[in-house]
Simulated scan of single mutants.
Amino acid sequence: MFGGGGMNPRKMQQMMKQMGIDVDDIDAERVVITTEDGEELVFEAPQVTKMNAQGTETYQIVGEPTVRDADAAAVTDASEDTDDGSSDEATAAIPDEDIQIVATRAGVSKDEAREALAAAGGDLAAAIASLE
Rank of each mutant, 00 (worst) to 15 (best):
F2E: 12
F2G: 09
G4H: 13
M7E: 12
M12C: 06
M15P: 10
M15D: 03
M19C: 00
G20D: 05
D22E: 14
D24Y: 11
V31C: 06
V32W: 02
I33S: 05
T35F: 12
T35G: 08
E36C: 02
D37P: 04
G38M: 09
G38E: 11
E39M: 14
E40H: 05
V42D: 07
K50N: 11
N52E: 12
Q54R: 15
Q54V: 09
G55W: 03
Q60F: 12
E64M: 13
E64G: 02
P65F: 05
V67T: 12
D69H: 09
A70F: 02
D71E: 13
A74V: 06
S79Q: 15
E80M: 05
G85D: 08
E89D: 15
T91A: 13
T91F: 08
A92G: 04
P95G: 05
D96Y: 03
A103P: 01
R105P: 01
D111S: 10
D111L: 00
D111I: 03
R114G: 03
A116M: 00
L117N: 01
A118M: 05
G121C: 04
G122C: 01
G122R: 03
D123H: 08
L124V: 15
L124D: 03
A126V: 00
I128F: 00
I128M: 09
